[in-house]
Each structure stands twice: as C-alpha cells, then as structure tokens.
Design a protein around this nucleic acid. Structure first.
Lengths: 192, 192
DNA sequence: GACTTTTTTTAACATTTGGTAAAAAATGAA
DNA sequence: TTCATTTTTTACCAAATGTTAAAAAAAGTC
C-alpha cells in the first residue's frame, strides 16, 4: 500500500517509521469517474492529491476557451495550488480525464503534518522546488522552441498520455490551437 | 537592519526572536558592481541572495542568444535554483544589471537553518509555493496574451525596471526579440 | 444500428513574430 | 571631445501560428 507514494516522497527526504505512521491516518482514498471534477471553479481546493492511477487535467477558462495548465503524470501531487495554499476560491478547475484513483490529504491536515514533522515540511519544500524548476523549463521551452519541437518533446517524455488525453487538451497545454496541432501533426507524420 | 528582509519573510511565517538570532550570523553582505557576476556558467550556486538594492538578471545562453529567465524585483530572493537545490554546476548565469547590495546565505547554512528551525523550513516552503504560482501566471500570459499585452502588463507591474534594465533583456524576458519589442513599443506609443 | 454530439482535420486567409541587414542613437573609453 | 562599441530602431521579407468555416472522423446515446 502507498508503494508509489512512498517511492515518490523518498526522492526528497528519508522518512522514518514515525513520519509514515503520522501520515497514514490522514490519507483518504478517492475514486473519480472520467469527467468527474476534483476541483470546481469558484470552489476552495481543500485537498491535495497523489495520483495513484488515471489522469487529471488542471485548466482554467479564458474568454470561453479552456487553457490546460497541467496534465498530471502518474504518481505526482496535484492540486489547484493558488487556491490550496491560500484557501481561497479557485479559478483553476481539475477534472478527471480517465477514471482515477487518488490519495488525498486535506489542507489542514497537511499543515498539521508540516508543523509536527520537520521532515514532512522538508518534503513539501523540496516538492515545490522541483515543481518550480520544472515550470521554469516549460517557460524556457515556450521562449526557445517552436510548437513542433515542444510537441515532439512531449511525445518523447509522456508517450502514454496521447492514448488517454484528447488532443485539444494537449494543444492548449502546448499553447496552440487544436487546428495548429493538427497541422503540425500532419507535417511531423510526413517528414519525421 | 534587515528591515526589508524581515518584512518580506514575515509574509510567510511569524518568526520569533530565536529564529532571527539564528539567522543573523549566517547572513553575509555582498556588494556587486554593475556587470559583476553573482553566478557564472558552470559554477555551483553556493548561496541564495536577498536583493537589498539594485537589479540582478538571471539568464542562460541558448544558441548564442541570452534568454532572460528573471529580472529580480527589489527585496526578493534570487538564486540559480536548479543549481542551488542540487549543488551542481549552473547553466543559469546571474549578473548585476546595476550596482547591488545583497544579503547572502550559503546553501549549507540554509539547510542547517531549515533543519534546526521548523519555522524557517516553513518559510522556504511558502516562498517556493509563491514562486511556483507566479511562474504559472507567466506561462498563462505566454499562452493567452500576445507580446504587446505582456509588455504593457510588465510596464504596469514594474514601471521602475525600465529605467534600469536594457530593453534587450526585457525583450527576452517577454519571449521576443529586441526588434519585435522595438516595433511593439512604437505602435503602443501611437495608439496608446 | 441510427442518430446526435463531440473531436479532429482541412483549407484559405490574416496576424504576429522572427530573421537579416543596416541605420540611428546611446554609451563607454581614451 | 573623439572614437569605438553597444544598444535600439527601422525596414523588408519569411515563417509560425491564429481565425473562421466547414468537412470528416470518432465517440456517446437511445
């Protein structure tokens, strides 16, 4: 149980028995069906989730379009962070793209955990550091690479996502329209 | 002394006398002249800095071009984070755009501080959370707004930067060439 | 299976931004 | 100041991506 979660967290800190026993009772399992919402617009993101199976999409509405901020790879933490950290209504929406099994922890329980176990606070800090660095690379990609290269990189890094996630979501994650993605896929198909 | 630093940090946690007395001996003052390097390419970022005065630029080389990742607003933390967190050689370069007065803390001292004072660990986590959220808004801007809007927003948010920072750096921060920025500034000048 | 709805693709044209080159302006150094 | 260097601007053309509209394909529903 929690094998993937333990493995993920152990990248960031060596947690002892005590730390794991403290977190266990705070974790709840939550199952979502495809298209179910994890966070709705205007709702406070009360928990953070670790994706045990399935795919979540974090997006927001902009002039009638949905902009995908993130498509959660398996076995990572996901939440509407601006809402979660400040416990204010969320503009980000989180929805299940496929059936999902999630491990969730409530905000207040996580804060309690952070304050009680310095090592968990450390995990929180390290996770955020890594997320920040990853996000910076994404900006780097936006500035230095055309959409076609960003698309190919995504295919390399997350090949399995394309079997589960509608192309329009991938397009908006790449920062282009689905028409542009379609055109781009055709040209990739022909000249490699 | 450390008035701005204290104010900045107090956004994230209420620190007591003990926490401040612990950090004081770890802080060093460092002065940079315009164009001095804070972190060179290939060098490990051994410290994080709080900008007391002046402007730093974080950038990296890409195909002979310099891509600006960040222009530090006053009174924030700056470091080459990918290098700093892993203590590996940095691809990011940090250079003083103007004369600067910095407060710096060595990586190992910061880790010591984090491990000794749960509240400092909390500050570290909260700072990273905020930086992540800010970076997300930047991606949002790249996806939803054309360069002209991003430029206007930057003028609104950091009006004083334009008096100190060469336009070419601002251009690459906005993700465009300096020629495009120049063209864009002209059209803004005419039709508001 | 037949029908409806959603997603993806295609096409033509418009807009934004990049690339190259060179001039103009600003800055720095002797 | 004068000269050299760097930065900013201008112009023209090319490339990438958006917009609009519609067709084709796929998925969902009864």
């Amino acid at each position: 149980m929690y094998k993937d979660l333990k493995q993920f967290v152990s990248q960031f800190a060596d947690l002892g028995q005590a730390e794991w026993e403290a977190v266990m009772p705070l974790i709840e399992t939550r199952e979502l069906r495809k298209n179910d919402y994890f966070v709705r617009e205007g709702e406070v993101a009360r928990y953070i989730s670790f994706t045990q199976s399935g795919y979540l999409r974090v997006f927001y509405n902009h002039d009638g379009d949905e902009i995908t901020r993130d498509i959660s790879p398996l076995h990572t933490f996901v939440t509407a962070l601006p809402s979660f950290v400040s416990q204010t209504p969320s503009y980000e929406i989180i929805q299940a793209i496929t059936d999902c099994e999630l491990f969730v922890i409530y905000h207040d329980n996580l804060e309690f955990l952070y304050d009680s176990y310095s090592n968990w606070q450390r995990v929180g800090r390290r996770v955020m550091e890594e997320m920040f660095v990853q996000t910076q690379s994404r900006i780097y990609a936006f500035i230095t690479q055309p959409a076609e290269v960003r698309y190919k990189e995504m295919m390399k890094q997350f090949p399995d996502i394309f079997q589960h996630v509608p192309l329009q979501y991938i397009a908006s994650y790449l920062g282009i329209t689905s028409q542009s993605l379609s055109r781009l896929r055709r040209s990739v198909q022909f000249d490699g």
